[in-house]
Nucleic acid binder design. Structure first.
Lengths: 343, 343
DNA sequence: TTTGAAATTGCAATCGATTGCGTGAAATAT
DNA sequence: ATATTTCACGCAATCGATTGCAATTTCAAA
């Protein structure tokens, strides 16, 4: 299994009594080689089971045709969809993907980024982890001349390409929907506010209140409730208030919303009549709970596509000044059983 | 953004008036360098924001510290869990992962594998796609001296390292459970039989019938029902038989089982009293349907861990003869509402 | 002070592919 | 038949890091 000598262009050259230059040119389909020699070279390459050494090629060319992706968790629906979306596009262009997960750990994120810089990737796509708000490592990416694209969870202060959701609008629509459905006391389960996405979702929540001229009730805003467990915990607290809410917007995720639903079911509170529930992210399970959960679809695969297309568009574009470009994708409110009062 | 000259060991060497050799040695923490020079070198490297060029390093060393993974779909729970499991282990060892998805397309799978060979990865981990049963490309991996580890969906005839589930046993237990629960006419939704995993699951199904001395009813076996839609379709057919089944084992996936459940609900057939349902894979949604679905947990993350550990164990092991090693992980039957007749 | 071993450092080749430049040969034009 | 392109291919440097071997320095023992 060890030390198998792989055939190189030199082996091919030697066999045919020519130079490696010609072999290289032939295999790159250069027109500086005679058609017949080219055919011959390609044929022998095939016979010898030649595989180009991408390392050598990339080293020489100073590019890697590789894109690095850093996301908090690979096995989380939203992120694996984004990756799939990126892959769809990059694969066709002959680019490879190197995937790293930061485990929501800022230090690991820094390490991942450094590894990718070492690998000389052509672009780094990142969705920042929830802890830490020091972005020196991202600045570093730019300093190394590597394209940086932030997706979904972005460090706003950094001027880079970004592909985001219009979180404010989505939240606004979700809460408006609740208000229009007649819910009066709408609680918010919010995520870590150092992540802009969660800040924006809160902003949308507040905006809806203002638009409908409804006063905000501070005690109905629960911090840091972004897992199923924390969502459940927050819900228990909310429902034991003297004036409990009649709807809960789990702005962090459907997992959180699922926690809400569980607690409601356990306490015998009827959804949606006594309690409306709205989640975020359109996880696959949200349509099969009972009742199914109203949520927001982020078009995650499409976001991935967009990221990849943005990259190819930018490298095609030889401007020295790359203007920071932000692509905002409008999410869609998906209304389901958990908020259909008069369904 | 373009053409940023990155600092190399030569830059560091020049600045300090020494050779690149020493710089390289220092940065690799060799003890062939004076402690003080080493410190100085490391300090300057840091100041100049030096990042090793992994391409050059790997080219020289003839290894890449990279593992390639080819799976049918990134955004499918089982696979993204396997990847996460692999990543957990490889990350610690300083290895990177290159991920490709074959989209269940045999040709794309071949291309993916070739790309990875070009990249000089140290190991390829693959779960073969559902179409095609020509495995020349995998043999090719071995011929190039690259470690090959097959996971879950394996080409049995190839003698490589394998990490699999004991599908026969799992199926056997699932069907036994149904039989013991008093179900008499147990249908099987089976997957493409060119994939050994599905063959094995069928085998376990048949084995249980034999063990309990129950005759197999051919008309209750439905081919190719491995998506939610196909599962639903198969179920409609089954339930419209003169003698419909009283239980369905969706051996392909929980998605398929979900299709069964949907149809049952739509037809007003009560689960589990009139119809028992058992799925496969323990997808996250399977515990939140109503009733929750009995299924089989494959310990997917752990399978990923196992794959990675197997790799490191094998490369540590300098035997020229690497014996094909197969690690079979015993899945666990998770009994839930959909089969609890007297619950 | 001399000698020998050990510790440092430098030299130069190497990994495999790419590419600018140059040269002879063939093809075309004059 | 000669001049001028064009074509095909070779030469050699290059990308950046590593490493065997040689050269030099250091230091201690004799």
């Amino acid at each position: 299994m060890k030390k198998v000598k792989r055939t190189t262009i030199y082996d091919i050259a030697e066999k045919l009594g020519i130079t490696a230059s010609s072999v290289s040119r032939a295999l790159n389909n250069s027109n500086q080689v005679n058609e017949k020699t080219k055919e011959l070279i390609i044929k022998t390459a095939d016979e010898l089971n030649y595989k180009r050494n991408t390392l050598a090629s990339n080293l020489r060319k100073g590019q890697s045709k590789t894109i690095g992706v850093v996301i908090p968790r690979i096995n989380q629906n939203f992120f694996s969809n984004v990756i799939a979306g990126i892959e769809e596009v990059t694969y066709q262009k002959g680019y490879s993907l190197i995937i790293c997960q930061s485990d929501e750990d800022h230090d690991k994120e820094i390490q991942c980024v450094n590894t990718l810089i070492n690998q000389h990737v052509d672009c780094i796509v990142i969705s920042v982890s929830a802890d830490g708000n020091d972005y020196q490592h991202l600045q570093n990416v730019l300093d190394h001349g590597i394209q940086l694209i932030q997706v979904d969870r972005v460090a706003e202060e950094l001027e880079t390409l970004k592909v985001i959701n219009d979180n404010v609008q989505a939240s606004y629509e979700a809460v408006s929907h609740l208000i229009e459905g007649g819910y009066k006391r709408i609680a918010l389960l919010e995520g870590p506010q150092n992540l802009s996405i969660f800040k924006q979702r809160k902003e949308g929540y507040l905006k809806a209140f203002k638009a409908y001229n409804v006063p905000v009730i501070e005690e109905l805003i629960v911090e840091n409730a972004w897992t199923k467990e924390l969502g459940a915990e927050g819900t228990r607290k909310l429902l034991s208030l003297p004036h409990p809410p009649d709807a809960i917007f789990a702005s962090t995720s459907d997992f959180s919303a699922l926690g809400v639903l569980d607690v409601a079911n356990a306490m015998g509170i009827k959804v949606p009549s006594q309690l409306g529930i709205c989640g975020y992210a359109n996880e696959s399970f949200s349509e099969i709970t009972s009742p199914s959960i109203t949520t927001i679809d982020q078009f995650s695969v499409y976001m991935g596509n967009t990221v990849a297309n943005l990259f190819f568009q930018e490298i095609g574009n030889n401007d020295t000044i790359t203007k920071p470009k932000i692509i905002s994708i409008k999410p869609e409110l998906i209304i389901r059983g958990s908020t259909k009062r008069n369904g």
